[in-house]
Amino acid sequence: MERIPILKMGRFLLVTVQVDMHDRLAMTLQDDLTGRIVKDRAHGVLIDISSLEIVDSFIGRMIGNIASMARVLDAETVVVGMRPAVAITLVELGLSLPGVRTALNVDRGVELLKGCIEERAQGNGHVAG
């Protein structure tokens, strides 16, 4: 079966969503990612949507689900590379992604995740690992 690859980048997982996913593929990704967060003990997930020409409510819901599942598993989610036209359209569609952070590109996303994790570690009185 067709699958979206999940790449390990240190403590983070990177998913590059390819052009025009059909619905089944999106559902599979959701399941695969949850499994990988646990298996790889990931602290963060980066979802690169720079090749997505649109985000509709289905993809939006998938991203939201990934973020809430990641949170339960103690990982942060950052969406990177959203195209400006997509961002404008999302607002009009009425889709807000609560709990999902966004960054311009993967590098900025990684910085954001590192910041989140440090902040959290300090808040908990632990040393960032």
Partner: peptide
Amino acid sequence: SLVDQTKIVTAASELAR
């Protein structure tokens, strides 16, 4: 325009689903 394209394609995706 790119924004108009994105809007109509997004609406089409919603309604097709």
